[in-house]
Computed example of a mutant assay.
Amino acid sequence: MSGRVVLVVGASSGIGLAAAVAFAARGDAVVLVSRSGDALDAAEKACRAVAVAAVDVIADDIGDPGGAGRIVGQTLDRHGRIDVVVHTATTMGYGTVEKMPSDVFTSVVDTAIHGTLHLAQAVLPVMRRQRTGVFIGVNSLLGSITVPQMGAYSTAKWGQRAVLRTLQQETRDEPGVHVCIVSPGSINTPIYDQAANYTGRAARPPVPVLSPERVAAAIVRLAGRPRRNVSVPVGPANPLVIAGFRFLPWLYDVLVGPLFRLAALTGKTVPPTTGTVFEPHPAAERTHGRWPATR
């Protein structure tokens, strides 16, 4: 399955960077996209260190309504086709719905939902013309549950999941085109330090924490053997947490607040910050966060 053209959006950090390196190591031509041109330089070097095919970079913002068209157009100009799209671009925000500034909340939601919308509208017609292609959206455990003080991110991921599930239904008429969803739990990436935060305390991923390479491996497997109408969970706790949310909501609601404060917030106090919601922080973008992966 080598030799494909793989477009990775959000490729300068975390899961996106891990996936880009994994595809490059398999012999696929990779096109790396991020709004941070400086961070893309490091991502390009990481891919070229393992690549046997082309590595290209495009600095653009998927949140810009015209960005997706430019990204897809440049990829087609360079390679003539797009076989796989991996959409990982996201921002995160911590804070109650009441206290988070509305523009921060809206931007977190827009990046996930409208970014997915723009990219799908630009690339799925290309895949239809080709009669083949795989669109992989990286969603989250929080696309299936809600958690206090993570309302913006949950809203973003629930909306993104709705877009992706609808696309799965609407592409059934083209058997060669697949829309897949990957739903990670806690992953050791820099997003927790990059998030907007209005809780007063620094954030961390709850255990068990998986490596971004685990998610990248799931993405690579889906690209080779896509499964329609399936959301692929990545994380041993995901099914249990989702079951509690759906079938024992009264118990879930009693426990989730205290558990969140214990497992997802540290004792370190931090001032309010918009994080990377409105602009990237290139120096902080890398594959791994500062928390050791347990699995």
Score class of each variant (00 low, 15 high):
residue 180 C to Q: 11
residue 163 V to I: 15
residue 146 T to E: 15
residue 280 P to T: 06
residue 198 Y to D: 02
residue 289 G to P: 08
residue 122 A to S: 09
residue 50 V to A: 05
residue 236 P to Y: 05
residue 281 H to P: 00
residue 169 Q to R: 15
residue 94 Y to G: 08
residue 143 G to R: 09
residue 224 G to P: 00
residue 221 R to W: 10
residue 272 P to R: 10
residue 32 L to Y: 10
residue 236 P to G: 11
residue 43 A to N: 07
residue 65 P to T: 12
residue 190 P to T: 03
residue 243 A to H: 06
residue 209 V to W: 07
residue 200 G to R: 10
residue 134 V to N: 00
residue 218 A to L: 05
residue 43 A to G: 06
residue 136 I to M: 04
residue 194 Q to P: 00
residue 72 V to C: 05
residue 84 V to L: 04
residue 261 R to I: 04
residue 258 P to R: 07
residue 151 G to Q: 11
residue 129 R to S: 11
residue 190 P to R: 02
residue 152 A to E: 02
residue 284 A to C: 01
residue 65 P to Q: 09
residue 179 V to F: 04
residue 207 V to T: 14
residue 19 A to F: 11
residue 69 G to Q: 12
residue 272 P to D: 13
residue 295 R to M: 15
residue 71 I to T: 04
residue 228 R to W: 07
residue 90 T to V: 15
residue 282 P to F: 03
residue 41 D to H: 13
residue 91 T to K: 01
residue 191 I to Q: 04
residue 41 D to M: 10
residue 184 P to G: 07
residue 246 R to I: 06
residue 272 P to M: 09
residue 285 E to A: 08
residue 11 A to G: 14
residue 292 P to A: 14
residue 272 P to H: 12
residue 84 V to H: 02
residue 285 E to Q: 15
residue 127 M to D: 01
residue 122 A to N: 03
residue 145 I to D: 06
residue 250 W to E: 13
residue 167 L to G: 03
residue 281 H to C: 04
residue 196 A to R: 05
residue 75 T to W: 04
residue 171 T to H: 12
residue 90 T to H: 05
residue 110 D to K: 12
residue 217 A to L: 02
residue 89 A to W: 10
residue 200 G to D: 07
residue 56 D to L: 04
residue 24 A to C: 08
residue 135 F to S: 04
residue 199 T to A: 03
residue 65 P to Y: 12
residue 227 R to C: 05
residue 85 V to S: 07
residue 136 I to K: 05
residue 239 P to E: 06
residue 212 P to F: 13
residue 252 Y to R: 02
residue 27 G to N: 01
residue 106 T to G: 14
residue 67 G to I: 03
residue 255 L to N: 10
residue 250 W to F: 14
residue 11 A to N: 12
residue 199 T to V: 13
residue 120 A to D: 02
residue 109 V to M: 09
residue 100 M to K: 01
residue 25 A to P: 08
residue 290 R to C: 01
residue 217 A to F: 00
residue 22 A to E: 09
residue 138 V to Y: 10
residue 36 S to I: 03
residue 149 Q to A: 08
residue 81 R to P: 04
residue 65 P to C: 08
residue 244 G to V: 11
residue 152 A to S: 13
residue 138 V to T: 14
residue 62 I to S: 06
residue 2 S to T: 12
residue 264 A to D: 11
residue 286 R to W: 14
residue 49 A to F: 12
residue 236 P to H: 09
residue 105 F to C: 06
residue 71 I to P: 08
residue 221 R to P: 00
residue 24 A to P: 09
residue 219 I to V: 11
residue 143 G to M: 08
residue 108 V to M: 09
residue 136 I to W: 07
residue 30 V to N: 09
residue 265 L to S: 09
residue 184 P to R: 09
residue 249 P to N: 07
residue 224 G to N: 13
residue 288 H to Y: 15
residue 105 F to K: 03
residue 165 R to Y: 08
residue 121 Q to W: 01
residue 81 R to S: 10
residue 106 T to Y: 13
residue 72 V to H: 04
